[in-house]
């Protein structure tokens, strides 16, 4: 517990981490508004068939693909800001057991990424659906099963991505390399749309962040627990690899 308290002191005494947290929430709301505003205008001039295919929840939440990068970066910073400034040595010398330090950082990541994710996902939902409604387009009420699932499970998916970022921060020991790798990894499904259909379909269904997002938002054929399980399993493996490396390398 005391080590976790120390992590909070570190997190809250650096402007970068606090700014990124607030920026993530603000960006979520802004993107919810922007994507929905555009969708509402398209709906106004859409053909009847297009109106039938209109998916208000997906369209309103398209910004999640950007926000996931910010939440993952938040996790990266929890580890990488210590490598960048050289305080990792001071922290390891002070804490002793490296497992305890990594566990505290994982706890810190969850405790910051979860509220940020809840605020981000819910704000994006509210901003998105009210903008659609105001624009005269269909919208989804929070009582809708798909919307409810997204509002409850979405933040957990994001928090897992923050832990993925944390693992990369430990493995690559620097903000820039870890953020680059994390961004490339999370955006690969979007970039892969130009690849041959079998590859594209496989990545779209099973790539860890896609598997979780698609099942949570109800656009995948996989059950929710499989899609989320792929992400959780992947993040667990990343954290274990990060721990083994952290334990066996010079700090």
């Amino acid at each position: 517990m005391t080590v976790l308290g120390a992590e909070w002191t570190k997190f809250s005494s650096i402007r970068a981490t606090m700014t990124l947290s607030l920026a993530t929430v603000a960006a979520s709301a802004a993107l919810g508004f922007l994507f929905s505003n555009a969708s509402a205008r398209q709906y106004a001039t859409a053909t009847p068939q297009e109106r039938l295919d209109f998916a208000p929840l997906d369209l309103g939440m398209r910004g999640l693909f950007v926000v996931q990068l910010l939440v993952a970066a938040l996790g990266v910073l929890v580890a990488s800001s210590e490598y960048g400034s050289g305080t990792m040595r001071a922290s390891v010398a002070a804490v002793g057991g490296r497992g305890r330090l990594l566990a505290a950082k994982a706890g810190m990541t969850v405790l910051t990424a979860l509220p940020v994710s809840v605020a981000g996902v819910w704000l994006m939902y509210v901003a998105g659906q009210t903008t659609l409604a105001a624009g005269g387009a269909p919208y989804v009420m929070p009582g809708d099963p798909a919307a409810l699932r997204l509002l409850l499970l979405g933040p957990l998916v994001f928090t897992s991505l923050a832990l993925f970022g944390l693992a990369l921060g430990f493995l690559l020991r620097g903000t820039a390399p870890a953020v680059n790798v994390s961004t490339a990894f999370l955006l690969l499904p979007i970039l892969s749309t130009a690849s041959p259909a079998p590859v594209r379909d496989f990545i779209s269904a099973y790539w860890p962040n896609m598997a979780a997002f698609q099942t949570v938002s109800g656009t995948s054929e996989l059950p929710v627990w499989v899609g989320s399980g792929i992400l959780v399993g992947f993040v667990a493996v990343m954290l274990i690899v990060a721990y083994v490396q952290f334990k066996n390398r010079d700090a």
């Binding site: 005391t2 308290g5 992590e7 570190k10 400034s85 040595r89 002070a94």
Partner: peptide
């Protein structure tokens, strides 16, 4: 060890405070 192993944006007090908390 290295005197500069402090985050440049963190105050001296916060640096010492987090170290104190770990122990």
């Amino acid at each position: 060890l290295e005197a500069q192993a402090v985050h440049p944006r963190r105050t001296a007090r916060k640096h010492l405070l987090y170290l104190a908390q770990t122990n």
